[in-house]
Every structure is written in structure tokens, then in C-alpha cells.
Design a protein around this nucleic acid. Structure first.
Ligand SMILES: [Mn+2]
Ligand SMILES: [Mn+2]
Ligand SMILES: [Mn+2]
Ligand SMILES: [Mn+2]
Lengths: 145, 145
DNA sequence: AACCAATTGTAGCCTTGGCTAAGTTTTTTG
DNA sequence: CAAAAAACTTAGCCAAGGCTACAATTGGTT
């Protein structure tokens, strides 16, 4: 049980887990932004800087800086003083994120978590769910329904 | 369905969710460090800077800077060139985090996620689980067992 | 057309959490 | 017990994501 190889395995999984968390946090902002931009365009016809600021609860200056990064990384296109658009790459990511988001919310509700808490917790949890776990979530929620 | 009050509620929950995520990320490092320090002391008798660096997969310089902050915030005590200790406040937090971590891992396994993936995903998920959801996780895993 | 309010942009600041590189101290080892 | 290795500290750099304050642009109102 307490063999060296066992301990090494635990150690290896441990640091891999933290590495995975750091990676998730690096893509998190891009994921939330593209999802929100897609939602806003679907709901209101356009996504403006003020809308994003209000949705995320941050200042417009923060949104502006983030948009500049997402533009540089190829997720968003933006012209000065005009509303925001997603690139095909950004759209694809938005769809995947929306789907994942909904699976997580649905799953949490299906194990008895209230709608509000499910929404609140899902916004963070969604970024730390591997494909395997996502599949398990989807399967469970579907069976439960 | 698409009444204004409904839309305002959605909007309110939305920004509250992102605020909750930002808060979780602010306490995350402290939580992971105190838990790890407690684990190392339990397993090896002491927690050293190199141990933490290897466990988290970061450099010892990064650990050092973080420890300085945790000291300032009252979670850790440290004397130069000596191993690290938790304050009572740090110990209390470590226990809560360890318990929460185990609940999350156990829950993921109970819905069919493999042991390795459960460990990997739990390290991030744990910080985004509210008390209500944690209770639901614990209840489900217990029932399933 | 001119003005004013709203929106967007930009500069500069802060904190966190990464890193490398170089200097100290402690511990081990020959 | 001296030298080498290991561990620790410190300084300085970077990127991300917050903020405030101020400047520029747009768009609606009169
Ligand atoms: Mn999210
Ligand atoms: Mn989301
Ligand atoms: Mn963690
Ligand atoms: Mn997170």
C-alpha cells in the first residue's frame, strides 16, 4: 500500500492536477467572454463594451483591455467605437462553452441544488471539468430526467 | 417568460456568479497551500519550501513569495531557512479544505468518474462549490455508498 | 448645427502568481 | 572539518486582470 511507486503516483497526480488548474485559469477569461458575446448578440443583436462590463461586474476599462488580448489571440474582431464580433474560432469556442455551461447547470440541479446556486457555482466549476467528467454529468442528468 | 423582472434576475445572477468566481480565485492559493502544508507535516513531519514547489509544480521562488503573503495574512509562520508551520487560523482552514477536497473527490467517483480524473478535476472544482452544493455532493456520495 | 450624455479608448497604477538569476545559509559528505 | 550540495532568500522581470482618471468619439436632443 505505501510502496514507493504508489507514493510517486500520488505525487505525480498531485502536481498534474495543479497544472491542470493553472491551464484552466488561463483559458477561463477567453471562454467566458466569447460565451457572453455570443449571448449578447443572440439576445440584443449586438455586444458592446458596456454590456460586457455590466454582465461581468467589472469596469469598461477592464473589458477593453481583455478584448484587446482576445483580438490578438484571434477570438474577437473589433473596430474602434464599434460593437464586438466573434471570429469563427471564437464562435466555435462560444458554442462549446455554452453547451458545457448548460450541462453543468443541469447536472447540479439534477442532484438537488437550487436553480440559483446551480447558476452561481456552474460559472466557476465549468472550467475545471474534464471531458470525462462532463460526459458523466451529462449522462447522469439525462438518466435522472 | 420574457418579462423584464425575469431578465433583471438573470442579469443579477449572472454578475453575482462572476463575482463569486473572482472571490474564489482570491482565496484559492491560500487554501491549496495550507492544505498542502498540513498534508506534508502529517506525511513527512515537516513542510519545506522545496516540498511545496515540487508538489505544486512551480519554482521555489514562487513558493517563497506566496509564503510571504500567507504569513502576512496570518495563515503561516516561518523563520528564515526553517520549515513552515500553520497558525491556528491556517490549521482550521486546512482541515475544512481537506474535508471539502475529499467530499468532491468521493462524489466524482460516485458518479462514475475514474479515480485519476476525479483527483485531477477536484483540485479546481473544490474552490467553486458553495456550501449548498457541497452538502448535495456529500449526501449523494453517502447514499450511493 | 450645436450641445450633452453615453460610450469607447488610453494611460498608468496595483496585486497576484509565474519565471530566471544570483547570493546566503544550512546540511551532508568525503 | 572543509568542500560540495542542497535548500532558502532576494531582486527583478513578465502577463493577466483588476482599478481610477482623463481623453476622444458617437449619437440623440433641442
Ligand atoms: Mn465561467
Ligand atoms: Mn459560463
Ligand atoms: Mn485546489
Ligand atoms: Mn477556478
Amino acid at each position: 500500500m505505501a510502496t514507493p511507486s504508489n507514493k510517486n503516483l500520488r505525487t505525480e497526480v498531485r502536481s498534474a492536477a495543479f497544472e491542470q488548474v493553472r491551464e484552466a485559469h488561463q483559458t477561463e477569461t477567453a471562454e467566458d467572454y466569447v460565451e457572453m458575446i455570443a449571448d449578447l448578440i443572440a439576445e440584443k443583436g449586438e455586444a458592446r463594451v458596456v454590456d460586457l462590463a455590466s454582465a461581468f461586474g467589472v469596469t469598461h476599462a477592464t473589458v477593453n483591455k481583455t478584448i484587446a488580448r482576445l483580438n490578438k489571440e484571434g477570438f474577437v474582431t473589433n473596430e474602434k467605437y464599434r460593437s464586438l464580433f466573434l471570429t469563427p474560432k471564437g464562435q466555435k469556442m462560444a458554442e462549446a462553452c455554452k453547451s458545457r455551461h448548460e450541462i453543468v447547470v443541469g447536472f447540479l440541479k439534477s442532484i438537488g441544488v437550487s436553480a440559483r446556486t446551480a447558476e452561481l457555482d456552474a460559472e466557476g466549476v465549468e472550467h475545471h471539468i474534464s471531458p470525462e467528467t462532463l460526459k458523466a454529468f451529462a449522462a447522469f442528468a439525462k438518466k435522472k430526467k
